[in-house]
């Protein structure tokens, strides 16, 4: 087994890096777009109960639809390949970011906002100096959830032609080549765990001030 694995890397090293890069690439783009959509919407609706409930419910539904279904549903509309994959991944990434953004702003401690008003901060100053920094940790937690979800679904997206490490797994399945299964599965697992670890470290850094 080990020799087979070593063999793969020596022969297909470049291909492997391309797959890895592709996987990271579509994950990154999807989360970036999701953030660009979800954060502004979250900030726009958090003050209104109706607005935030609608936003949460409509995207919350997505959590119940299996990710495989979301990927496959887009195919009749968009075909296969990178476009439907990135679209599906973005759609999957929006709920956790949106819900956390809304929650983050809704749970800001009132005493701090009153102090900010009382000392004479303008609305913009209050938003950038107080609200946003204090809301950021919870928003970040949502982003972390989204990233892990996207890396997982990107693996599936190989099935519909997105490229990425899933290719190794699906090839391994069709040829019943265990070495490919282990390399593919192992790479995705390590990528996911490493990313989680890095994001957790960042989270610990940005919330350092909360600990006595």
């Amino acid at each position: 087994m080990i020799s087979e694995i070593a063999d793969y890397f020596s022969r297909h090293g470049k291909d492997y890096l391309a797959l890895l890069g592709g996987h990271i690439g579509i994950s990154f783009i999807s989360v970036a777009i999701a953030m660009a959509v979800a954060v502004p919407i979250g900030i726009a609706v958090y003050r209104s109960k109706i607005g935030s409930t609608i936003a949460e419910r409509s995207f919350g539904v997505l959590r119940i639809v299996p990710s495989l279904a979301v990927l496959i549903i887009l195919i009749p509309i968009m075909g296969t390949g990178v476009l439907p994959s990135v679209t599906a991944l973005t759609i999957l990434a929006i709920p956790p970011i949106l819900i956390n953004t809304v929650q983050a702003f809704q749970t800001l401690p009132k005493a701090m906002l009153e102090a900010a008003d009382g000392m004479g901060m303008s609305t913009a100053q209050k938003f950038f100096k107080v609200k946003l920094p204090l809301a950021f940790p919870l928003m970040f937690a949502g982003i972390r959830t989204a990233v892990i979800e996207v890396i997982a679904s990107a693996t599936l997206a190989s099935y519909i032609g997105a490229g990425g490490l899933g290719d190794l797994i699906f090839t391994g399945l069709s040829l019943l080549r265990y070495s490919l299964l282990i390399i593919g599965g192992g790479s995705v697992a390590i990528l996911s765990l490493l990313t989680g670890f890095v994001l957790d470290s960042i989270y610990k850094q940005i919330t350092k001030y909360q600990r006595t």
């Binding site: 401690p109 005493a111 701090m112 009153e114 102090a115 900010a116 008003d117 009382g118 000392m119 004479g120 901060m121 303008s122 100096k129 107080v130 920094p133 204090l134 001030y209 909360q210």
Partner: peptide
């Protein structure tokens, strides 16, 4: 907003900004 900057306001729940140092809190305005 201008008016409030000329008034000192202290509340019961204190309302220090937890993400800023003591110095940064005092020097906010």
């Amino acid at each position: 907003v201008e008016l409030r900057r000329k008034i000192g306001y202290v509340i019961q729940q204190i309302g220090l900004f937890p993400h800023m140092t003591v110095k940064a809190n005092i020097a906010t305005i």
